[in-house]
Design a protein around this nucleic acid. Structure first.
Lengths: 241, 241
DNA sequence: TAGTGGTCTAGACCACAAA
DNA sequence: TTGTGGTCTAGACCACTAG
């Protein structure tokens, strides 16, 4: 029935998600875990893992004793905050065909904040890149990335920064980006941001101030992103824990 | 060894978390799943569930073939966005002893937006409450809650709104709040918000615009919250999915 | 009472990291 | 090679919902 690799759980999840998207379930009611397990020829545990993940993503909800159901409000969310990994794919999820533009690439000496965040010495070289994500010709996101120069062992040219940052870090620094620790900061658009994003000076804007950690749990990236929330709505689901 | 209820997984999670907080693990290295399972007298699956949840919360990270480790950056986060359930407890997590102040309670007729979001008819009565969360005498959060009047079957007085909203909805409407669907919106402080929160007009601010759903998946609450991010930093962890 | 999801077990095999 | 976490199974029992 199913092959291993990708994992049975992943396949089960995709299978169920696809049927949800196709609206194949009468009244939003998803078959019982036992039925799904038999249908796919896997154990109930595997199905439960798949459903748990769909529940966490807000795709379904479960009621003990009753059943598992499609969660329509959750389906309408295009961008879930915790799941943003690259802005390119966020824009694609919104039905856009994004492009990127490199505004500047420069090298400078780390100040105290940067040194502390990136666990390097004050004065060490830092490469700063300003990158714009556009839908058609409309700028949607301005990202300012800062990477310690010493991590970038493989030579690069300006156009290399067009690739997603995690890919760039892997190819030019053998660094695997593991997760971001993000802080949400409200800002007022100044002239620089305004001209880059094409919004009026004085407007309020959401920004992410974040540190990217490698899979080895070392900070390898500082980033600050400014988002045109009129073009990209940021949503999340909050639950009791 | 352990009793059931609360679940073995919950207990295992608390047990491990406690030992992490007490810094009992040499070099941040957590014992292997097998060792923990024997130690607590439960199956490895139970331990794995507990560790998975700690990993999702950013408390630990796992490396196949290597081991499970304490995630120090994650431990420093006091407020994780997806885990906000009541503002009271958020403030308590920050070491504050919060109080609340009810600014206004009024009833009005639902406009089109409200009617659509709450799945009621235009013109139906809506109760709107403005509530302030303070640390000492400093206002930190202004919340504007809107609830359909017809849900509130049990009589209430103004001071009843001091309790957390999920508790109020349960006591006065037999509604169990299940989750929020939130949108993050940047705003400029106007005179009303400024005077309530004690910040200057014209400053940028983060606001949550959200709909609360019952466990039966019906919208039962609209809310808009304004947060003084200088007093309350909003953070989250973003991972690859 | 029948059927659903929630919890838990014991054990198997795999992929990967470190010695 | 050894030990770790990752995946999966088959089956047990419980708690809850709904007819």
């Amino acid at each position: 029935m199913l092959e291993r690799k990708p994992s049975l759980t992943d396949q089960a999840k995709s299978y169920i998600k696809q049927r949800i998207v196709n609206d194949e379930f009468e009244g939003g009611r998803i078959p019982s875990e036992t039925v799904l397990a038999n249908e796919l020829g896997v154990s109930r545990t595997t199905i439960r893992d798949a459903l748990s993940r769909l529940e966490n993503e807000g795709t379904v909800y479960r009621r003990q004793g009753s059943g598992t159901y499609v969660n329509n409000p959750g389906l309408q969310i295009k961008t879930r905050l915790e799941e943003i990994w690259s802005y390119e794919s966020v824009l694609r999820d919104h039905g856009y065909t994004p492009s990127t533009r490199i505004l500047t690439v420069r090298t400078s000496a780390a100040d105290e904040t940067q040194a502390e965040n990136l666990r390097i010495e004050v004065g060490e070289e830092i490469v700063t890149v300003e990158k714009l994500f556009l839908e058609d010709q409309d700028p949607v996101i301005l990202a300012v990335n800062q990477v310690p120069r010493k991590l970038l062992s493989v030579p690069f040219v300006e156009s290399d920064w067009h690739q997603p940052i995690y890919e760039f870090l892997w190819r030019h620094g053998q660094q695997r980006l593991g997760y971001y620790l993000s802080e949400i900061v409200p800002v007022i658009v100044d002239r620089k941001i305004g001209s880059a994003l094409g919004v009026d000076v004085g407007q309020p804007l959401i920004s992410f101030s974040e540190i990217g950690f490698s899979e080895e749990n070392e900070p390898i990236l500082m980033a600050c992103s400014y988002i045109r929330d009129d073009l990209l709505r940021l949503r999340l689901i909050r639950r009791r824990t």
